[in-house]
Design a protein around this nucleic acid. Structure first.
Lengths: 249, 249
DNA sequence: TATAGTTGTCTATATCAATAGACAAATTTA
DNA sequence: TAAATTTGTCTATTGATATAGACAACTATA
């Protein structure tokens, strides 16, 4: 059994090249587990027939995925799958980065990329229940699991109340631990809004993606158990590596 | 104020044509509310400068969106926004199609596209807690709001227990009402797994999308209040028209 | 009623995407 | 070892994408 790559479904003159569409299909098949790690892809000629395209077009798709580190091609043998199934990232009332991926990865951590103080934009102010323009601290972070980037997030905190949270984050590598230093032992996810779009240039660089990739975007507010907003965040997840599992709240 | 279309972020030789990327950016800007209905887009020359492309490339993007019914171009005057902000589709313990969109739309309904009886696949069987191969009824539906398709779903029900649910659905146009005929007055969302991918040919046709569009995909299990699985479903939402709002359970 | 600003159309050219065919190079199998 | 299978490379051709420039057509306004 060679995996279930959908029959045709290829759109011409769509603004998306055929090789990119085929690469997406292969990525998706791997992501949902149709190909296990090290499994062989069907030969190029077979794929070309299945999609109704020229063999060279299939080769373009494959070589893009080889560049991305998803496939490995071996002359005379075949083309093999390197990456694994998508990670399942839980989202619920007590969404935490590290605990959520336990069991699926051997190692995970958060890197603080940058931090700054800035006046709250309209949506940040709304989310945190502050006046627009109030000083807030922005933390830019990247989540990594087994060496692969799995999330890219910006978090905003009221500057007056959480002065120094950037330093705490740099030290501890954990939002939860950093908030604990400000007397916050527990917090809940109040709201999450979810959307998807093509990765932009920043996403491509931060998450090590190739052009044309899709990112899942969550915009969320975390509150203390008594309902006080403490964090507004926007996170981006590479759709080809991560799915979101909505857990009971 | 002309709206905040992101500065550049255009990727060349990415497999996605420049005009498609620019169309996506305009769609996104409209979707998040940067342009209100009837607002004028910046002139073509301005957009071309902003993205660092030729005016003709911008025109390709715009004409694609005109074909999609998102924009209206008027010679001598400008190009104007027709579509509105994204709908916000709530997902929670009591996710229901109709009630969820109340207040955002004046009209919404579900169309039954097709139904069939089939042996349960591995994942359907797992979701419903049945043996693989058990007969299940599949209902293919499309959700529409104010005349625009907003969702495309497949739902699976155990055939023995819910014999005739296809007729009920055709009559009532409501899953909730159909389940009521089988003595199910309440049901809860047990699990939801969320992902995103490019729309395939079926999605394009069913949801009236253009190639290159992105769909949000949810795979969910609904259960009775005492935890008995009754429905397994896979839904697809056009990311350019819908965002998902995860509500408290 | 000019004039400036905007979209629409045309021609020409260069580059990317896709097809077609042939054959080389490496690996596995009979 | 020979044959079959599979990936790698090359040449050539066609159509879609993107750039460039010029000017027409229409609208609003000074």
């Amino acid at each position: 059994m060679v995996g279930r790559l959908a029959a045709d479904n290829i759109e011409r003159r769509s603004g998306v090249s055929l090789w990119r569409q085929i690469a997406d299909k292969i990525l998706h098949a791997i992501a949902i587990g149709d190909f296990t790690e090290n499994a062989a892809l069907p030969p190029e000629v077979t794929l070309a027939e299945r999609y109704g395209v020229n063999r060279h077009t299939v080769r373009s798709a494959i070589s893009a995925l080889v560049r991305e580190g998803v496939l490995r091609a071996e002359q005379g043998r075949g083309t093999f799958v390197l990456s694994r199934k998508r990670l399942s990232y839980p989202i619920g009332a007590r969404t935490r980065f590290s605990t959520g991926l336990q069991g699926q990865t051997t190692e995970r951590h958060i890197v603080l990329l940058a931090s700054s103080v800035e006046p709250a934009s309209q949506r940040v102010a709304e989310g945190l229940g502050l006046a627009r323009g109030t000083d807030v601290i922005r933390l830019e972070t990247r989540g990594e699991a087994d060496g692969r980037p799995v999330s890219r997030a910006a978090g905003w905190f009221e500057a007056r109340r959480f002065a120094g949270i950037d330093a705490a984050m740099a030290q501890t590598g954990s939002i939860t631990a950093s908030l604990a230093r400000f007397g916050i032992d527990d917090y809940l996810r109040q709201s999450t809004v979810l959307s998807a779009r093509h990765a932009d240039a920043a996403d491509l660089a931060d998450l090590d993606l190739q052009p044309g990739a899709i990112v899942l975007v969550t915009v969320a507010v975390n509150v203390t158990p008594d309902g006080q907003p403490i964090q507004f965040s926007e996170s981006r997840f590479p759709a080809e590596r991560v799915e979101l599992k909505l857990s009971a709240l």
